[in-house]
């Protein structure tokens, strides 16, 4: 039988990016397949343990497909994709109904038979992660996103500034205020405060 499948260039190569710009499905498929794990981690870090991860990932892929013909190659494809994902997350944060939703957490089956920490520790850890993101939810997205990208994700300030589309000075200022707000709330929060107290002499 005749196969329609074409030889696909390496994802991220110039030929592959050109094919993606033309809307070649196989090239898009290969490109996204390579980028999905990093995108997933990024979105998860930004939104925390939420059931919206797959939906946001899907929206990111759709937006990237739409935007590919306009991608000029000035930034690396990864940074370009990160910027799209950050925009999608930003829009998600601004949806008013988001604040009324409670996500049901999926517990992976291997976590239930984990030989590592005891179940109460696992639960405690999960509740602390949830608590952290509840505190982050109180910080405006404009400040929260650069803070998470710089302080938690470890991206340099100038890269964060490029991703969020702000000047370096404005980005530093946003990170400063986000940091201050988060630390003040974390100090008042009993479960997070415990983390610090455990280490205090």
């Amino acid at each position: 039988m005749e196969s329609v499948a074409l030889e696909c260039p390496l994802p991220g190569s110039t030929a592959s990016l050109d094919a993606c710009r033309r809307g070649d499905r196989q090239a898009l498929d290969a490109f996204f397949r390579a980028e999905i794990p990093a995108l997933q981690r990024l979105i998860a870090r930004l939104i925390g343990p939420s059931g919206d991860l797959d939906e946001l990932l899907e929206l990111t892929l759709i937006a990237a497909m739409d935007a590919f013909p306009r991608y000029r190659g000035e930034a690396s494809p990864q940074r370009w994709l990160t910027r799209i994902a950050v925009n999608i997350v930003y829009q998600e944060f601004r949806r008013p109904e988001r604040r009324r939703r409670v996500a049901l957490e999926l517990v992976p089956s291997d976590a239930l038979i984990d030989q590592g920490p005891l179940p109460d520790r696992t639960f405690e850890g999960r509740s602390r992660v949830r608590r952290l993101y509840q505190l982050l939810d109180k910080i405006p997205p404009k400040k929260r996103i650069p803070f998470v990208l710089h302080v938690f994700e470890g991206r340099p300030i100038d890269e964060v500034a490029a991703i969020v589309g702000a000047s370096v000075v404005a980005t530093k200022s946003r990170i400063f205020w986000a940091r201050r707000g988060l630390l003040a709330r974390a100090r008042r929060d009993p479960s997070l405060r415990e983390l610090f107290d455990q280490e205090a002499p």
């Binding site: 794990p37 998860a44 993101y133 983390l195 610090f196």
Partner: peptide, 23 residues
């Protein structure tokens, strides 16, 4: 110390993600 712990919690949120249900 506090920021260190918060960063660890954030790492956990990022790394605790289930492998893409089906890419």
């Amino acid at each position: 110390t506090l920021l260190n712990h918060l960063a660890e919690l954030s790492d956990r949120a990022a790394l605790d993600v289930h492998p893409a249900a089906s890419s």
